[in-house]
């Protein structure tokens, strides 16, 4: 199931929206590589995705600190749990060389998680930021 970014997922912060779009694109490409059984590509893309996730989470966390967002700690916890899951997925893949069910894990642990996190947690951050801007 492709991970499509739509305007409905906008959190109202252009830089973060742009990063979300890129994130979704990378996950989609990773899913394609997995379905195509391209192991070399999958490994490289998991590393690349990890780096991008790190950059993106840093951007959000710095933003939240800058605007004094009270939900920062809880939001950070979600980021940390996801990072740990992503690394574990990468490690399992690296150890096995292949991973039956990788597609399923990518869809569930990465795709679904990202969509849900953006929809709920990042949206809340976006709403706070826009209220803070109007104040």
């Amino acid at each position: 199931m492709p991970l499509q970014w739509t305007q409905a997922l906008s959190v109202g912060i252009p830089e973060i929206d742009a990063q979300h779009q890129e994130l979704f694109r990378q996950v989609d490409r990773l899913l394609e590589a997995t379905l195509a059984n391209d192991h070399g590509q999958v490994g490289a893309m998991l590393t690349f995705l990890g780096e991008y996730v790190a950059t993106h989470f840093s951007t959000e966390e710095r933003f939240m600190r800058d605007v004094g967002y009270p939900g920062l700690d809880r939001h950070r916890e979600e980021h940390e749990r996801f990072a740990a899951d992503l690394l574990e997925l990468h490690r399992d893949f690296a150890e096995a060389g292949t991973l039956p069910g990788l597609v399923g894990r990518l869809n569930r642990q990465v795709g679904d998680w990202l969509r849900g996190h953006v929809c709920v947690t990042d949206m809340a951050m976006g709403r706070f930021a826009s209220r803070a801007r109007m104040a």
Binding site: T47, E51, V53, S58, H79, L87
Partner: peptide, 14 residues
Amino acid sequence: KEGPTAALLIRVTN
């Protein structure tokens, strides 16, 4: 600068 973040976890691993 940033403390023990998700980003640090990923970067130390990678």
